[in-house]
């Protein structure tokens, strides 16, 4: 089968070609301008951040050899030749790791309960008054935007050194993050049951309890578990500012150049985080079916 390809007359073609070139040229120009702005921003930023490529290249060997050093025992052997020596402090570290897990558990639970109490006021469809909604939303936003470790620094001053500060910091940050997610679930809930219950003359509280809660509780639990996962990572560095957990031990090891301890603690943290991820993933899968796993 042959297809006749019609060729446009020269004049018509020239006009179309010109229009095409013009369109492409404009697009290219915009891209180029954007790129130029971006590069200029990068240059300004690298001056601001005191980027010094000479130091970087001079000391880059240190970065590689740092890993070489943390994987070497005091006697010059590789760490994996003697696990007993490498993980000499395993008992103490596991205890601190247990404390880290408890900090994140208690913090997540307090945060989830607070978020639960607040989220109905923050959601568009259930909030009793717009002004209340605005206030609660700003409050949650504040709790979410200030990094957890900044709260920890302040709480260490108020509650003293130790895990209490870490727990409260994690609780506040989780309240902000979960409050937003929870209220989004509520906003997606079906409002017909609420109308049904309200038509029987029920109070606002009863509407929430019997119409909204049954729809959203599974989503709440899923997000809370996810938050727990994140908080375990967060709690592992809380010790950097004296707020309890394994971070204290890690920062001492890094600052005092106990090289093999650094790698041993890092390995225990990574393995724990990995195990927690798998476990909570499994629990979420069991509780809420496969689609909730991600």
């Amino acid at each position: 089968m042959t297809i006749a390809v019609s060729l446009l007359p020269e004049q018509q073609l020239a006009v179309l070609n010109a229009a095409y070139r013009k369109a492409v040229a404009r697009k290219r120009l915009r891209l180029l301008a954007g790129f130029a702005v971006f590069v200029a921003a990068l240059i300004v930023a690298s001056i601001g951040a005191e980027v010094n490529l000479r130091t970087f290249f001079a000391y880059f060997g240190n970065f590689i050899s740092y890993f070489d050093r943390i994987l070497t025992l005091d006697n010059g052997q590789r760490v994996w030749t003697d696990f007993g020596e490498w993980f000499w402090g395993l008992h103490k570290w596991l205890e601190l790791l247990g404390e880290t897990l408890l900090i994140s558990y208690v913090g997540t639970l307090i945060g989830a309960v607070l978020a639960f109490a607040l989220n109905f006021f923050a959601a568009e469809n259930t909030s009793p008054a717009p002004r209340l909604r605005f206030t609660v939303r700003r409050l949650l936003e504040f709790a979410r935007t200030v990094p957890g470790i900044v709260f920890a620094l302040i709480f260490v001053m108020a509650f003293g050194l130790g895990p209490v500060a870490g727990v409260l910091a994690i609780a506040i940050h989780s309240t902000g993050a979960l409050g937003k997610l929870f209220s989004e679930i509520v906003e997606n809930a079906d409002m017909k049951p609420v109308e049904g219950i309200r038509s029987t003359g029920a109070s606002w509280l009863s509407c929430m309890r019997f119409a909204i809660l049954p729809q959203v509780s599974a989503g709440y639990a899923s997000y809370a578990l996810l938050r727990f996962e994140i908080n375990v990572r967060e709690a592992s560095v809380m010790g950097f500012v004296g707020a309890g957990g394994i971070g204290q031990e890690l920062i001492v090891a890094i600052r005092k150049f106990y090289y093999s301890d650094v790698s041993a603690i890092l390995v225990t943290i990574i393995v724990t985080v990995f195990l927690i991820d798998i476990t909570t993933g499994w629990v979420r899968g069991r509780l809420f079916g496969k689609e909730a796993r991600n």
């Binding site: 005191e50 010094n52 130091t55 000391y59 740092y66």
Partner: peptide, 8 residues
């Protein structure tokens, strides 16, 4: 530890 204190 590698490049010293500072924003870099």
């Amino acid at each position: 530890n590698v490049v010293g204190l500072g924003p870099f």
